[in-house]
């Protein structure tokens, strides 16, 4: 494998993701009794402990770097930071609670607002999707690319269960060959970056920590991630919310979707 521009960062992020994944998998198998407690439930503990594990690894390796995490109180100082780690220690909480194995650890690194590293780790399958600027995207050690499908009506699209059940996908479903529900935004983006599905769309707001790692994976796998109104995301903004519609996948599918969705 070529020399990576962010070799140390990749090693630390993968180590952090695995450590978090082990914690999450352990909590996932906790006795049912403790799942019924509203406070101190396994989901809360898994989220917080995984967050601590990731922050500890990153802080040890890169003490100067700023961190934005779903589970840590936002520090305004991060807006001045050149390097920002953007973390969701447990993306796909609903599925985690329901015992559906569709949740992931997501870690991204933004440099001057541009994503340069992404790691998405699935604790139960122990699959690690990772990539960094200029080096491509990998599933464990195998390089990946986005799908070669060129038409929306041939595309298998990943979407969120809740958006499907709320009817938010109804205006778009008929554009595609198939829409599959799947948990975790980060996992969906990673699967599209690995060519395991063709496309992803969302009609609900997302946060920077949901998408930063996956965004980099898509860029390096030959695809793109955009909000249709504003294009690619510049990260480390005061308002961490990204507004729908959003799409990810091969550029030609994104272009075709932008055109078709504009008329709906």
């Amino acid at each position: 494998m070529m020399k990576l521009e962010f070799e140390r960062e990749v090693a630390a992020a993968r180590k952090a993701a695995r450590a978090a994944g082990e914690i999450i998998a352990r909590h996932c198998q906790t006795d049912r009794e403790s799942w019924d407690k509203a406070e101190d439930s396994p989901v809360t503990r898994a989220d917080l402990e995984a967050n601590e594990a990731i922050c500890a690894v990153l802080h040890e390796s890169f003490p100067e770097d700023a961190i934005l995490s779903e589970e840590t109180r936002d520090a305004p100082g991060r807006l001045d930071a050149e390097r920002l780690w953007i973390i969701d220690p447990l993306d796909g909480t609903k599925e985690f609670i329901q015992g559906i194995p569709e949740f992931a650890v997501s870690i991204g690194l933004a440099l001057g607002g541009e994503p340069v590293l992404g790691v998405v780790y699935q604790p139960l399958t122990r699959e690690c999707y990772w990539g960094c600027r200029g080096a491509g995207t990998y599933l464990d050690d195998a390089p990946t690319q986005v799908s070669g499908v060129g038409r929306l009506d041939q595309a298998v699209v990943l979407s969120s269960r809740s958006e499907l059940s709320r009817g938010q996908m109804d205006p778009y479903k008929e554009l595609f060959k198939e829409v599959r529900p799947l948990g975790s935004v980060a996992l969906k983006l990673a699967l599209v970056a690995a060519g395991r599905a063709d496309f992803w769309i969302s009609a609900a707001p997302k946060s920077e920590w949901d998408v930063c790692g996956g965004d980099l994976l898509l860029r390096e796998a030959g695809g793109t991630f955009v909000t249709l109104a504003t294009g690619p995301r510049r990260y480390n903004q005061a308002d961490v919310l990204l507004q729908p519609l959003m799409a990810a996948g091969p550029q030609r599918l994104v272009d075709a979707f932008r055109e078709r969705s504009a008329s709906r």
Binding site: A25, C28, Q29, T30, D31, R32, W35, Q98, G99, P101, L124, T125
Partner: peptide, 13 residues
Amino acid sequence: WRDCQAAARGSAF
């Protein structure tokens, strides 16, 4: 069903 799901928790599939 709830108890079965709980017993299966942590399985990849």
